[in-house]
């Protein structure tokens, strides 16, 4: 592994200043589960590595404010999986966090890192899209917040400007509550990179939010307000054409060795229908239209 300089700022301000100074030659280190692989294989060769874990504002924490839950930049997947509030309000995020790598990876990998990598296959992206997460960012010009849908740009790209870093990801508690579910397609049951990531959320008003990844340059969010998909009494066959249209954004790569485009597109429909059924089943009783 090639050498680099290592910086351990203790405030967000210091980190931002370093990031601003070094620009693309700096890399932020939180969990490091993807970054260190890149260091070793030479695909990432920074001049300076900025470790965020000594910054008190970013220390692992999950805060429940009543209207939202805020997950700090250094909170790891295990923290998320074990958090009662997240489990209660955002079960699909728990399901996604639970399948990010192994226990060892989940003890280290952060939610913010999962998103900032910009991997189209990031497990947590679809639930964050369905839950309308907000990304809190700090940078040279101050702090700002933006919707996750705007934050995710494309493969290995997120909407961070020079000098900016993510400080937290905020999840507004759905009101009224929604039913949600996450599912994925893998090559084996053990830890694997997903060929499809998919999350579905339905609310009592009949709105269905569907987000899916690993089948295009980024995870997409699509919304159906017709009420057809959310209708528990309508058959899968009747929903199929609409569900198909929801997957119009999917453009799986023919170059992938993980799954063929035909298989991914077919499985989107299968997993979509399954997640939809689970989500409807999880909608709190009495909230169905």
């Amino acid at each position: 592994m090639r050498g680099f300089q290592y910086a351990r700022p203790v405030t967000v301000g210091e980190a931002v200043a370093l990031l601003d100074e070094y620009g693309p030659d700096a890399r932020l280190l939180a969990g490091g589960t993807d970054l260190v692989i890149g260091f070793r294989d030479g695909s990432i060769r920074p001049k300076v590595v900025i470790d965020l874990k000594r910054i008190s504002e970013l220390r692992p924490s999950i805060e429940h404010t009543g209207e939202s839950i805020s997950i700090s930049a250094c909170a790891v997947m295990t923290d998320i999986v074990e958090h009662a509030g997240v489990r209660e309000h955002f079960p699909a995020l728990v399901e996604a966090a639970q399948v990010v790598g192994s226990v060892q990876i989940r003890n280290r990998a952060t939610l913010a890192g999962n998103i900032c990598n910009g991997s189209p296959a990031a497990d947590t992206a679809p639930p964050l899209l369905v839950y309308d997460a907000m990304v809190a960012v700090s940078g040279p010009t101050g702090a700002r917040r933006m919707p996750i849908d705007e934050f995710i740009v494309g493969p290995k790209r997120v909407a961070l400007e020079r000098g900016e870093l993510v400080t937290a990801i905020e999840l507004p508690i759905p009101d009224p509550p929604i039913g949600s579910a996450y599912t994925r397609l893998t090559r084996r049951w053990g830890t694997d990179l997903a060929s499809i990531t998919l999350c579905c959320g339905v609310d009592g008003a009949g709105v269905t939010r569907l987000a899916y990844g690993s089948v295009g340059p980024r995870a997409f969010l699509v919304v159906d307000e017709s009420g057809i998909l959310a209708d528990p009494h309508m058959s899968d066959d009747a929903k199929a054409p609409l569900l198909d249209r929801m997957f119009a954004e999917a453009t799986p790569s023919p170059r992938s060795m993980r799954a063929s485009p035909e298989y991914r597109l077919a499985m989107l429909r299968v997993l979509g229908a399954r997640a939809l059924r689970t989500a409807i089943g999880r909608l709190p009783k009495g909230s169905t239209t």
């Binding site: 090559r187 084996r188 049951w189 053990g190 830890t191 990179l193 060795m257």
Partner: peptide, 24 residues
Amino acid sequence: IILDEEGRIRNIGAIDYRIPTSLD
């Protein structure tokens, strides 16, 4: 093992060459 057109192993290493785990 998956090869590319040039005879290189595409799924080299533990990420994309899948062997059975305790869940398989």
